[in-house]
């Protein structure tokens, strides 16, 4: 019980203290995960919509594959990205290993399938509703994908938030490709792993509380933005 109380007071002290090292860690976490989410959404949303709309041989296999990839273990992604970006690997010359770029790459790979799979599900439902109308209007396939993405954008928010959640929460991939280097690649999750390793359980849990708080704020912000946009739309002529 003492440890839990100590964790909350550690979290409170961190928030009130505004320690520059902690601020750096939080900002890096947000930059890495948000950049990965933006990239993964740019890649994943059109793929999800296309899988919902187009009929082609092998589509079902792709859907199953995508669903399975939602369960990609972060540590496996980390290992593959590490081997690829290692100086002895195919992309070693880029010099990305142990930099935030490597972490962004790993998280993008990790969450693109998740965003695409969840997007495909909500797009498939929308497509069932729209199919006849769009067909009768003679709308071309790519225009159809764009229309679905736009009209279903509120539903897509969920897939993007799920992607953000997975990116912000994972430690296995970023610790392997980032190296958990102080001031360079230390994120909230890798800092929690390090503090736990040092036996500083209260500090580690305090960081965990802070991470959950930040995640809550981002999700609440996204929810409110969605509601606001929906209300604007309903009110518009």
């Amino acid at each position: 019980m003492d440890e839990i109380a100590a964790a909350f007071s550690a979290a409170l002290a961190m928030i009130l203290g505004g320690d520059p090292e902690l601020v750096q860690i939080v900002l890096l976490s947000l930059r890495v995960s948000l950049t990965a989410v933006v990239l993964a959404a740019i890649l994943g949303l059109p793929v999800g919509a296309a899988l919902a709309v187009f009929r082609f041989p092998g589509r079902r296999v792709l859907v199953v594959l995508l669903n399975a990839l939602m369960g990609l273990p972060p540590v496996v992604v980390g290992l593959v990205v590490y081997v690829t970006l290692s100086r002895s690997g195919p992309l070693g010359a880029l010099g990305w290993l142990f930099t935030p770029l490597a972490m962004i790459l790993a998280q993008t790979i990790l969450i693109t399938p998740l965003i695409a799979a969840v997007a495909r599900q909500s797009m498939a439902e929308l497509w069932a509703e729209y199919a006849d109308e769009l067909r009768s209007l003679g709308v071309g396939p790519w225009r159809t994908v764009a229309t679905l993405l736009w009209d279903g954008r509120f539903g897509l928010l969920t897939s993007v938030l799920a992607g953000f959640g997975r990116a912000a929460a994972e430690v296995g991939a970023v610790i392997m490709v980032g190296g958990n280097i102080a001031h360079v690649t230390r994120t909230m999750t890798t800092a929690i792993a390090l503090e736990t390793a040092k036996g500083e359980l209260a500090l580690a849990m305090g960081l965990g509380i802070l991470l959950m708080g930040i995640s809550l704020v981002i999700n609440a912000g996204a929810y409110l933005l969605g509601e606001f946009a929906r209300a604007r739309e309903a009110g518009a002529p």
């Binding site: 947000l30 930059r31 948000l34 950049t35 933006v38 142990f98 930099t99 935030p100 770029l101 962004i104 190296g179 280097i181």
Partner: peptide, 21 residues
């Protein structure tokens, strides 16, 4: 989103001037 994500990425890439691992 662009303001949040992209400049951060660029600045991270250029922040590394003289360092050893």
């Amino acid at each position: 989103l662009a303001a949040l994500a992209l400049p951060a990425t660029l600045s991270m890439a250029s922040a590394a001037d003289r360092f050893i691992t």
